[in-house]
Design a protein around this nucleic acid. Structure first.
Length: 626
DNA sequence: GGCGGGACCATTTTT
DNA sequence: TGGTCCCGCC
């Protein structure tokens, strides 16, 4: 949907032409909210010719930031330089790169994306006697809870019944030791980026003022997903009631409560800013029948904004809603497969199967593959998993953080997986010591003696160690691995190599698009670590997604399976009571509103030998009698 | 052969 | 919170 101002309806135009002060755009599904946000930014830029006026756009996903960036480049050309479109996390790394020295961070800090590495830190702290960590996994969860809710150690007793008991003291100590470790080692994880940014802006008001002077206007996409840590940072960017804060939100799509999102946040926003409110109830995506179902469903939630308008269908789109029931889950999957088989093969990418949990999708995938229907579970991973890309990437990371023992270990393990020969980090370190060089040089000299990886060694020394020309190094490494990967005529030596190479190339391109071509190695690595490495799907492939990953996308043929009590809503939400059920209801709302044409819903009586009742949501949507 | 009790399984994952 | 199966025991 690439709208221009003349295509907008009255409500949309009102939002786009918003000038100063705070505005809350309450937008339903399919209401063109991204287009509105994009055009509003474009409009501001055209109407404020002063170069110094800059705009900050904050999103949650890299994908959303990239999409908006591309649209704005098309609309504005050169002027789009005045806009910084960032995810919350990427914005925080910007701030910490520029001003983190106040907290003893250097700009070349390393981003930790892996929980295993974080657990290793906690174990290390325990071994050194710097913190008492009996159960690193659960301590990590507690640390993340504190990060998400922006809880600082002094605030912690409040959450332990007002008392500073032993448990509370232990956690305070673990949290403090952990964050101190990060600063000392020049490392950041996702949660600490927000934590340290807030700390910095609070502790050094001069920096906060400077950031506010640069960004006169702040826009936030999908505001309903903001957790308290993010909101606190936002408050520091826009402390005044009259700040130029432009926020787009849908309170019916809060489905990340477990990550700290909360219906309360919108109420907080209203009381902190008293924003003017513009509603976009028009739904240009779903057929009228689906809009009616979704409205009936969400009416059962009490946690809504009372004045929020219900969605109004705009498409004269008959669509088709179908509900099917089966004896057990196997039959349900077979029913789904025969339904999808009706869609011609070259239209299969219009098929989106949604379930509440991955477990159901796994069986769907297996059964579809057996039936000759191409299908893939759409999921993202944070790290590269194929050894060749790991060798390339860890070498780059080691060039950035030469003393990191963790990275050297990872590099050696990945190298061993590529050519089947062990490589010991101790040997590399010993050689580095003797020759008085950094471990990365010693590493390259060791692989120079191996048959398969020899060509990488020379390139590595010249392009990484000598000149930090990391993009050339990556290109050379990939061409070596390409040759290595073709073992037979069509054979692949490394199963995930193609996927990882694809994500690598796509993400590199996006990063250079967003940040320019002369990006320093550390900034590039930081952005790369912040980008999820999604698999690229083959053509004619049915997409299988959970409700959460399907948020924000739409599809012509949507199939929702497993609509029974204990699955959707989940067993735990039923046990946890009303507010959990309301979140499940929003999950269901999100699921059905993905459909732009046909919607197929199904349930069965038996799942893995457990008998289940049809979901209450089917009744609430008026599809069955309760 | 009939019984009581335990095991089974425990969601979602923007960065 | 469920239904069912299996084991051990009397």
């Amino acid at each position: 949907m690439n709208l221009t101002i003349s295509d907008l309806n009255e409500n949309q135009r009102h939002a786009v032409e918003w000038d100063e002060g705070s505005l809350l755009v309450l937008a339903g599904p399919g209401s063109g909210k991204t287009a509105v946000l994009t055009l509003r930014i474009a409009n501001l830029i055209s109407n404020t010719p002063q170069e110094s006026h800059r705009i900050l756009g904050l999103t949650f996903t890299v994908k959303a930031a990239n999409e908006m960036q591309n649209r704005l480049r098309n609309l504005l050309g050169e002027d789009s330089r005045r806009i910084q479109l960032r995810t919350f996390h990427s914005f925080c790394t910007d701030i910490l790169r520029q001003h983190g020295s106040q907290l003893n961070f250097r700009p070349d800090f390393e981003v930790i994306t892996n929980d295993m590495d974080r657990i290793a830190i906690l174990k290390e702290l325990n071994d050194r006697g710097q913190a008492e960590v009996d159960d690193p996994e659960s301590s990590l969860k507690q640390i993340d809870t504190m990060f998400r809710h922006g809880i600082t150690p002094p605030e912690l007793p409040k959450y332990f019944g007002g008392k500073q008991n032993d448990q509370c003291r232990t956690l305070q100590n673990i949290f403090t030791s952990y964050t101190k470790w990060l600063a000392k080692e020049n490392q950041l994880d996702f949660g600490s980026m927000l934590y340290f940014t807030r700390k910095l802006l609070e502790r050094v008001p001069r920096i906060a003022r400077q950031v506010r002077t640069v960004y006169r206007y702040v826009c936030v996409d999908e505001f309903q997903d903001t957790n308290l840590a993010q909101y606190r940072v936002l408050r520091l960017l826009c402390p005044e009631t009259a700040s130029n804060l432009f926020v787009v939100a849908d309170d019916h799509q809060i489905i990340f409560q477990w990550n700290g999102a909360n219906p309360k946040r919108l109420k907080e926003l209203k009381s902190d800013y008293s924003p003017k409110i513009v509603q976009l109830p028009e739904n240009y995506r779903c057929p009228a029948k689906v809009v009616e179902m979704a409205n009936r469903l969400i009416a059962h939630n009490s946690d809504r904004i009372e004045t929020k308008k219900i969605s109004i269908a705009q498409r004269d789109n008959p669509g088709n809603v179908k509900l099917k029931s089966f004896g057990d889950f196997n039959e349900e999957v077979n029913g789904l497969i025969s339904e999808i088989s009706l869609v011609p093969k070259n239209r299969r990418e219009t098929c989106l199967v949604i379930a509440r949990s991955n477990k159901l999708l796994v069986q769907v995938k297996n059964d579809m593959i057996s039936a000759g229907v191409e299908a893939e579970i759409v999921s993202k991973s944070q790290d590269f998993s194929s050894p060749p890309i790991q060798v390339m990437y860890y070498a780059m990371k080691l060039a950035n953080a030469p003393e990191s023992r963790t990275l050297l270990n990872k590099l050696c393990v990945a190298t061993g997986l590529v050519d089947g020969e062990m490589l010991s980090a101790e040997d590399v370190l010993a050689q580095a010591e003797v020759e008085g060089v950094v471990p990365l040089r010693a590493f390259f000299s060791q692989i120079a003696e191996r048959n398969t990886l020899k060509p990488i060694a020379a390139q590595g020394v010249a392009l990484l160690c000598d000149s930090l020309d990391y993009m050339s190094f990556a290109r050379e490494a990939i061409s070596v691995f390409d040759a290595l990967n073709q073992t037979g005529e069509v054979g692949e030596a490394f199963p995930d190599y193609g996927y990882d190479k694809g994500s690598w190339e796509r993400i590199s391109k996006e990063i250079h698009h967003m940040h320019g071509d002369n990006l320093s190695l550390h900034s590039f690595l930081q952005e790369m670590d912040l980008s999820p490495k999604a698999k690229t799907l083959p053509k004619d492939c049915v997409r299988l997604q959970t409700v959460h990953t399907a948020k924000g996308i739409e599809s012509e043929n949507v199939f929702i399976i497993g609509l029974v009590e204990d699955q959707f809503p989940t067993y735990l939400s039923i046990r946890n009571g009303d507010s959990a059920i309301q979140e499940e209801r929003r999950n269901c709302f999100v699921a059905v509103t993905r459909s732009s044409k046909n919607l197929y819903l199904s349930y069965s009586r038996l799942y893995f030998d457990w008998s289940k009742e049809p979901s209450r949501f089917l009744g609430e949507m008026g599809l069955i009698r309760n």
